[in-house]
Amino acid sequence: MVLIDSWYTAFRAKLQAIACHFGYSIQEAEDIVHQFFLDLLQKSIPDAIQNPEAWLVTAFKRRLIDLHRSQQRKGNYLEIESFNLPSTQEIIEKLETDAALINHIASAYKKLPARFRRVIYMKYYQGYSTEKIVALTGLTHQTVYNNLSKGIQHLRQHLKKDAVLERLVNFVLCLLP
């Protein structure tokens, strides 16, 4: 009971957004998510779920497929089946084990002009807030913001060319509910 409550608090927003992604209205999505968690309360949950986020997303996808099959029309079976939203843990595990992926991101970063790399490095490696970067570099807030924003924009363009982010999506979920 407590477990399901905490899952509801932590993952309700994401599940509701998934339902909306497949065409349900916010109200419909909310109802589906509530019913999903109510049903979970009636079921026996496996003891050793290591990655609740992934487990819930997969279970919820099954629910959407069931709704589709029972003529509630939203989504497409194959589309729902192939829709993967990796959990934080899965993203990190993928980053840890896929050296080529890291090299791709590094290569995209290396292509950035130095002024972009400097602020990106300070924010994502050194963990500084934008205000702290402003104080340390002596640049204006607007310049730091622009350099970060443009830097990320360029990075996305480079990554899209190599379809890198898709690789983070398209690895198969192994956890099945």
């Binding site: 993203i91 890291i102 994502y124 990320i152 982010l165 983070l168």
Partner: peptide, 9 residues
């Protein structure tokens, strides 16, 4: 994914 990928990289 971009935030986590950048940090980890």
């Amino acid at each position: 994914k971009l935030v986590l990928g950048l940090r980890y990289m």
